[in-house]
Design a protein around this nucleic acid. Structure first.
Length: 300
DNA sequence: CAACCTTTGAAGTCA
DNA sequence: TGACTTCAAAGGTTG
């Protein structure tokens, strides 16, 4: 039933082809996380070094125009507890046309609903941004809250800590103690993961979807539709998450969790070259070409 | 019940 | 150094 519904939505979607935008496209720019990489040969302060630097580098006035190879802003631990980005964001005036969906979209979440035309006047400030992960106190040493960081999970791997439960001893820790095992410290979330966490509920409400794979596709498209300023907020949050993570777990490395999940990419790659594999809906999705980043088109 | 699906980005491994 | 791999989240689906 669900499959038929979403496929009819897919057909509907196909009735709204992208407008030809010849001459409207600006020069493609590298993704922000790439633009922030230092050019070869330019030494970069590690996050830890930068964090401890007495003279941190201020953020450039317009990160969308400049190649920056330092963290965007002065690290500020106080911001972990009441982080807001102020008025740096502007409403995006353009969106990029998504590649054909691997999971066709639900009727209540067609393309136009994914990318509504901005109703506010161009230049109107975005609502002030807050992120619960950083707002609610994440256990900075010395802080009165001293709350366990959500990166701590039981060896089972499932995140049990709820955002508003951080003043309690976590189930994860209790369970880990009972089992006599060391709790797993998870990777800090990157910019897109933070964006997903914040926007997931909204997409679920708008699109009446529950399947994470489909939701993540929508979120991926929305991520590409964000302006660079909007994305910059999440890159900044992710940078602070990494800093906080480093403070809390100085000896931790992503290597610690490397290879703990079952290796499957090689098998997946072999399957993709030999006919593919069924997805969560029992279909055989054809991998779409990745949408060209930052090639915005005028909103329909 | 573990693994899969799906997304992007960070960081790991390997040649 | 570049290419490739793994893991972060999420929850329904699959085997």
């Amino acid at each position: 039933m669900y499959k038929e519904t979403v496929y009819s939505a897919f057909n509907l979607l196909m009735h709204y082809p992208p407008t030809s935008g010849a001459g409207q496209h600006p020069q493609p720019q590298p993704p922000l996380h790439k633009a922030n990489q230092p050019p070869h040969g330019v030494p970069q302060l590690s996050l830890y070094e930068h964090f401890n630097s007495p003279h941190p580098t201020p953020a450039p006035a317009d990160i969308s125009q400049k190649q920056v190879h330092r963290p965007l802003q002065t690290p500020d631990l106080s911001g972990f507890y009441s982080l807001t980005s102020g008025s740096m964001g502007q409403l995006p005036h353009t969106v990029s046309w998504p590649s054909p969906p691997l999971y066709p979209l639900s009727p209540s979440c067609g393309y136009r609903q994914h990318f509504p035309a901005p109703t506010a006047a161009p230049g109107a400030p975005y609502p002030r941004f807050t992120h619960p992960s950083l707002m609610l106190g994440s256990g900075v040493p010395g802080h009165p809250a001293a709350i366990p960081h959500p990166a701590i999970v039981p060896p089972s791997g499932k995140q049990e800590l709820q955002p508003f439960d951080r003043n309690l001893k976590t189930q994860a820790e209790s369970k880990a103690e009972k089992e006599g095992k060391k709790p797993t410290i998870k990777k800090p979330l990157n910019a897109f993961m933070l964006y997903m966490k914040e926007m997931r509920a909204k997409v679920i409400a708008e699109c009446t979807l529950k399947e994470s794979a489909a939701i993540n596709q929508i979120l991926g498209r929305r991520w590409h539709a964000l302006s660079r300023e909007e994305q910059a907020k999440y890159y900044e949050l992710a940078r602070k998450e990494r800093q906080l993570h480093m403070q809390l777990y100085p000896g931790w490395s992503a290597r610690d969790n490397y290879g703990k999940k079952k290796r499957r990419s090689r098998e997946k790659h072999q399957e993709s070259t030999t006919g593919g594999k069924r997805n969560a809906f029992g279909t055989y999705p054809e991998k779409a070409a990745a949408p060209a980043p930052f090639l915005p088109m005028t909103v329909l």
